[in-house]
Design a protein around this nucleic acid. Structure first.
Lengths: 324, 324
DNA sequence: CTGTTAGCGCGTTCAC
DNA sequence: GTGAACGCGCTAACAG
């Protein structure tokens, strides 16, 4: 009887809402009411219960709560690559936002693999997470995606099935080109990634091509993979005695280009990248890196998702009677 | 009645174990048995139930399962920095192992902050995750840690409270020094991080100092922060006309050193780092980078934890009657 | 082998 | 205001 409390302190036995109720000398439902901030509880009683809860270090079982219909307060994040600096920035921003709202995150890695992505989505569905933030890629299979509706936000991929946050692919390249034009540089080449990649590939290349057309400049470009090796290898193919600058689709590519130009002693050529990579600007201070606002994108995505989730909850409440 | 199946297909109503039971014309416990691979089920029945499950795309509620005493099959990972290349490698390795074992991961970031770490641990405890892999750091508060016992493995931190996986801090530095000695280089300086950091700081510096003593070489070193800027700034202080090589405590530092030496046109000096950083070897092919086996560490940590969890389960089963 | 029953911990009526 | 009772989806004990 009276040993209950001592017992609990002694052995870290799992406390339940019932234990708290006994200790406080009230019914379990009253404790529940306190937990759910139900106004219909005498302030006095509430205070006492809260006291006991604090003292005993009791925490309601998430499993039981979520089974009872509540949400787990968990959102899934599927990144393409865990070690991508740009995605990392976005993820950090996401985490900060959702933590602040009492959510936790389960992070997964798609490795640009459609099947893995779908497997992850499947797992997240089974775990009934509240929502998902997906870092898109071109081959991404939309069939699984649309099942999520309001409960998903994708980053860096165009789709009208779910909400999406996109970097300003066109803007970052134009910004770079504008910057170069301010420096009176006109002979500008471009090194990017294959247009089969819709965003970093096609969109950014198009931005370059459009600019060239607008300004009646002869385009000179090459595309390949998303890594520095690829860019390194492509440099020679666009190089030309009167090239004054090379615009790169990403900082990673810029790194490869810088390396090659250094070898060729063509450090007169101005390079621009995209990403705001700190390491890049340390190694090659003269490279101009446009920051596409990854952290901002992450923050936006998180806020957007949370807002949609809130909306979904409200709608659910409203339609519950109807769906009955 | 007969509409049940059509209904389910129509609206993606949450299927329960009971629905499956009805469809298969069996009791709910039989379905449960199938789910839990209970041998005591007639193969024929089992097959039929499995069939229905597949067709309906039913998935048992994790929440209910875990509430009933089962584990969530989730392990928490607390990294110091999401964007640390070395930790990333380890994390990727961890993920691969645990996915293969049907576990999922919730990843958190401590940012070398004790308080955040404890908050994360608290959250993980509330969520009753099965286990935790923690990337340690020096100021890490052990008080919260020891509560986890068998259910935690720490990486890169010495402690006897819980299992720990450590990189071979001494070994990597000695390996670098040995390599240099093979090249007949004897005038070797060291750039590391402050010894207040126990592992990357003190252990690696000690390795250097010991080597010097053993080989009767005059030590020449400087320590600072863990970033390339710091290393960059420290180079001049150890530089000397007859320095032939600089051993760095990490690849990040090596990057800073390389940058500075390049500026000074002292590319004759051999640099070594630790980390197996791919970018580093791309930018500075002549830098020797010792791979401390981060992915191996991650893999080991994950396997170790899973094994301990299995053990814990068994012990729990055995002691359950006693604790009663 | 299989159906029935009893909880797990919690939120939610429904009476008091 | 508050306590008793019910059910969420599932597993494990108990009967057949």
């Amino acid at each position: 009887m009276a040993l209950t409390l001592m017992d609990d302190l002694r052995m870290t036995k799992k406390l339940t809402i019932l234990d708290i109720a006994k200790m406080a000398g009230v019914g379990k439902s009253t404790v529940s009411r306190v937990l759910t901030n139900d106004p219909k509880v005498k302030p006095e009683t509430r205070l006492k219960v809260e006291q006991i809860i604090k003292e005993s270090g009791f925490t309601p079982s998430k499993s039981a709560q979520s089974m009872r219909g509540g949400s787990q307060k968990v959102i899934g994040i599927i990144t393409a690559r865990l070690d991508s600096p740009s995605e990392n920035k976005a993820v950090s921003a996401i985490l900060e936002v959702i933590y602040r709202h009492g959510y936790d995150a389960v992070i997964m890695e798609s490795q640009f693999d459609t099947q893995k992505t779908n497997e992850h989505l499947e797992v997240l569905r089974k775990r009934s997470v509240d929502g998902v933030i997906l870092f898109g890629f071109t081959e991404c299979d939309m069939s699984e995606v649309e099942r999520w509706n309001e409960r998903m936000v994708v980053i860096a991929m165009d789709t009208d099935k779910v909400s999406s946050i996109n970097y300003d692919n066109n803007g970052v390249i134009r910004q770079a080109l504008y910057h170069l034009s301010e420096l009176s540089l006109t002979n500008i080449a471009y090194i990017g990634v294959d247009p089969s990649d819709k965003t970093t590939g096609k969109l950014r290349l198009d931005a370059y091509l459009n600019w060239c057309e607008e300004h009646e400049l002869p385009p000179r470009f090459a595309t390949g993979q998303l890594d520095h090796q690829s860019a390194y290898a492509l440099v020679d193919s666009v190089l030309d005695d009167d090239i004054e600058a090379i615009v790169c689709a990403s900082d990673t590519l810029a790194l490869g280009v810088a390396k090659r130009l250094q070898e060729l002693h063509r450090e007169d050529i101005q390079i621009t990248g995209v990403g705001g990579n700190e390491l890049l600007s340390f190694l090659f201070p003269n490279i101009i890196s446009i920051n596409p606002g990854y952290q901002l994108a992450g923050e936006s995505a998180a806020k957007q998702l949370l807002q949609q989730l809130d909306g979904a909850v409200n709608i659910a409440h409203l339609t519950q009677p109807l769906s009955f």
